[in-house]
Nucleic acid binder design. Sequence first.
DNA 1: CAAGTTTCTGGACGCTATGTCTAGTAATGG
DNA 2: CCATTACTAGACATAGCGTCCAGAAACTTG
Lengths: 204, 204
Amino acid sequence: MPQVDDRRTRRTRSALRRALVELSLERGYANLRVDEISERADVGRATFYAHFRDKQALYDDVVAALLAELKERLTPEVRETGGFTGRPLVALFQHALDNRDAYRVVLRGDGDGRALTRLRDDLSEATLRTFERRVEEQGLEPRLDLRVVARAWVGEQVAVLTWWLEEEAAPIPLEEVAGMLADLSRFGRMWATGVDPTGASSSE
Amino acid sequence: MPQVDDRRTRRTRSALRRALVELSLERGYANLRVDEISERADVGRATFYAHFRDKQALYDDVVAALLAELKERLTPEVRETGGFTGRPLVALFQHALDNRDAYRVVLRGDGDGRALTRLRDDLSEATLRTFERRVEEQGLEPRLDLRVVARAWVGEQVAVLTWWLEEEAAPIPLEEVAGMLADLSRFGRMWATGVDPTGASSSE
DNA sequence: CAAGTTTCTGGACGCTATGTCTAGTAATGG
DNA sequence: CCATTACTAGACATAGCGTCCAGAAACTTG
């Protein structure tokens, strides 16, 4: 396996990564052939196999890099947070915008949805830990199972992010979607839709 | 193409559908070979091709059936609903429980996540229409873009459902998760985590 | 800038899985 | 019971994968 600190190696791998993302967006990961990816990357087919065992390995590499970078960006935002700031949320959306194509591939569930599952699980885990820490520190008494709250909150974020990244006409500015999402999550759907709190029947 | 009203045809197709779901759960859709599926279904490989063009066609068939049945179950629940009843939510969870394996395959994003995207998009569309109808009828003034609210709400449901179906140890009863999810969505995360509404800083 | 190392390359190879076809057998519906 | 229809095993051509090689090209180091 070629060494990473060689210019040719760096060029080749990054070209392959880019080609994979581009082609996945255009025709779907499952429909791609290795020779197609190599050709798009302007690299011999034999070279592909010098760097990656197969198509899946290349995809895994792309995803791993993405998740690692996301984690790096997210960590400081979560750290210096006491309450419900929208900062980790904004960081996620910003990171997605900076790597839009790659995110679209992952969020579409390309590559058997394994990457998407990874992303969701990682975020859910981290979110749950944050919730538990916050509850502990502030002596709160949760009314619901925090695992459900965490999963739901991550689900909201990912769903809206997925939709937002695909919107082509008149996209909502980042701060705006993130703000809406944060408010919705904090105050709930009744508040968001403008239901009069006094008159509405509470449940069932 | 064989006629559907023949007993042999019905048996063969349903065996193939079942085999696909089983094997997808065990080894992942992408890793399956056609001869494997036929063998599990106890059907000749040639017979497979008499009924489905390829593996993808079989998968599409399974998903289409699932979505059609879901729609059938959901429609009456949505119809006779005025406010925020949790009834469509419960119906979704019930349907998922009744077809647990198939749902797990779809929700894991097997088959390039296309089925999952379909499910999410269909639900989001329907939800958005319901929200708009409700706003119209009750003369509400939404504080947020309803597209975002709809996507987020569906995202919550799907994320929690995905997690819930995979939980093996001490699963939460259906009514309970559904209830939590409905309450969380209605009243928001601050309420759910027990934050004192008076003392908390509202935003940012 | 030269020497030595490493990567890139096209072409050839064997192999696995796909999708098609056929002729004979078994099951079904009427 | 008979005409129709579906199932089956096996053979076939083909596509795409992953491996290997030996020469050409590019890079790093001193």
